[in-house]
Structure formats: structure tokens, C-alpha cells
Amino acid sequence: MDYLNDILSYLNKELSPDAEREFLNRLETDEQLRKEFYCQKNLLAVSNGVIDFEQTASRSDISRFMFRLNALRSQEKGMTKRNRWFNFYRAAVIIALPIIVLAGLKLYRDASHTSAIESTVFYTETYVPKGERTKLLLPDGTEVFVNADTRVRIPSNFSPTHRMLWIEGEAHFDVMKDPEHVFLVETPSIDLEILGTSFNLNCYPEKETVETTLESGIVRFAGTERVTIDGRILKPGHTAVYNKDSKTLEVDEIRDNELATGWTDGVLKFRDVTLGELVKKLERRYDVTIVVKDQALLLEKYTGKIRNETIQEVMNNFALATPFNVQYRRDEIIVSK
């Protein structure tokens, strides 16, 4: 009797409801069929488990695992519950001070059914508006200097042993060195793992690239779903440029670091940057809206440095280099030929 084809048909779900019922009845009574079925089912499951198909775990699954691993690590070190609560409140107080806008409190319902380690995690979102900058001091001693028009989300269970945040925009990080507890930085496109480092991260949503400029320490790129840049390590002085479209990571070794980090000293330095890109930077820096009427102007390139100049002075300087008209309205600046 050929059991195998019946079993495979059942496992493939190709039996009609009646035939399926009949098969299940036979399973009840026929011990040999049952044994054979178990074996086949198990073989299918293990085959599914070991087949090599270039698939890696998703970013969110990995992050979740790394958090739980860190939580476990701190438990092992005998960190008491009270200590962790203390850290939580300290985090809450320290984070709350510089918050300018408490934009949203997102309740993240843990999907877990069996987890005892994690319960509910809140995210506190800080939004730094255009025209402003702010410094966040995290409970592990890490300093984050956040540029204008940037969102930062910090989980409520952030602690010196569980370090992570999410960011969209630009910030300069001084991560407290702790080789045992990686600091995870998530952006909408790539993740970074940091051990103890100062670096600048620029991941504004409209940019085609995510740029990471390293001053000291080590940054490791953690890749994303279907992107295999994992394990790439950046050296001090170099800038990593991740292209969101092509999903490639390139390292620029000769870029002037001040281009990336100048903003922390209030300096906006640029070299061969199109007006189109500059408009975005100026809008963020000065909290203005700039409308360029002539598309060709957007491609004009500029090199320069802005320190304390007003937006009028800056625009007038550009107008000297490439003749164009600037009109200042109440809520916008109009540039035309």
C-alpha cells in the first residue's frame, strides 16, 4: 500500500474536504500510516528549516533579539529591579528637560505571548523644530546633539545596559564607551551599532543617502532586510555614504569632516552643493520657506561657509555669485531669475 502519496497530498493540502476527513479517520485507526505520517511531517519541517535560501532575519526581529540579550546580560550581572527602575526615572527626568515638543507617545504593544522579560515599551519622541538645535543627555552618559527638523525616539526601557534609539534627521553623537553593551542607532533605512564613539549621522528623509562621519571609535553597519552591508566597519576621519536606492555603502576617505560636523559649532560649510540642496539646509537652519521659481537655478552650485549671517545676508551673497532676484514675503522667500 502506498501511504506516501496520500500523506504528501494531505501535507500539500490538495485533498478535498471529504478526502481529508477520510484521511484523518484512517490516521486514527491505522498505526502504520500514523507513524509514516509523523515521519513525513517531521521531515518536511526539518527540510524547511535547513534549506539554504539566502534569507536573513528582519531588522526588527534582530533588534528585538539584541534588546532582550542585553536585558538578560544585565540580569545576570545581578542588577536589581530597583536599580533598573531608578535608571528609568533618571532617564525620564534627564530626557524630559531638553524636550521641546513631546510629539507623541506611541504605545507599543509587545506581540509576545510567552516573554517574561519584556512587557510594555513606550517611546518618547523628541522633535527639534526648524531653526533650533538641542542637546540630549542619556542615562548611560551618551550625549546627542540634535540638529533642526529631526525626530528622536527613545524607548522607556533605555538603560546603560540597554542602549538604543531611533532617529530621522541629523545628530552628532558622543556615545559613552562600553564594549559590553552595544549602542544601537536605528534610522528609517539602516542601523548602526556603536561601542564608544563620536560621529555625525545625517539621515534626513529627502536625502538619497545616509551619511555617517566618524571622528573617533568604531561604527559597525548593521544592514537591513535584504541588504548585506553587515559587518562593515568605519575608520575615524572617514565618511560612510549609504545610498537608499541602490542599497550600497561606500566609504569616502577624503571628505572634509567640517562639512559634516560644522553645524555643531553653528557653522554651515558647503562645497559644490546645489542650490536645491542648500535650500533644504537653509530652511532648517533659519526656519524659513524658500521657493525657487526657476528650475535651472536649483542646479547652480555653491561653495562657502555661513556663521552668524542673517538669512538676508546669505541670500544676497548667493545672488551676487549667480544673479537672481530675491523677494522677502512674510512667510516665504522667493528666488527668481
Partner: peptide, 13 residues
């Protein structure tokens, strides 16, 4: 951490 991450990434699916 890095070793656990690599393992998880490859074997979890």
C-alpha cells in the same frame, strides 16, 4: 553581541 547577532541573522528564518 556581534557573534549572537550574526548567528541570529542567519539561522532565525
Amino acid at each position: 553581541n556581534s557573534a549572537y547577532r550574526e548567528l541570529f541573522e542567519n539561522l532565525q528564518p
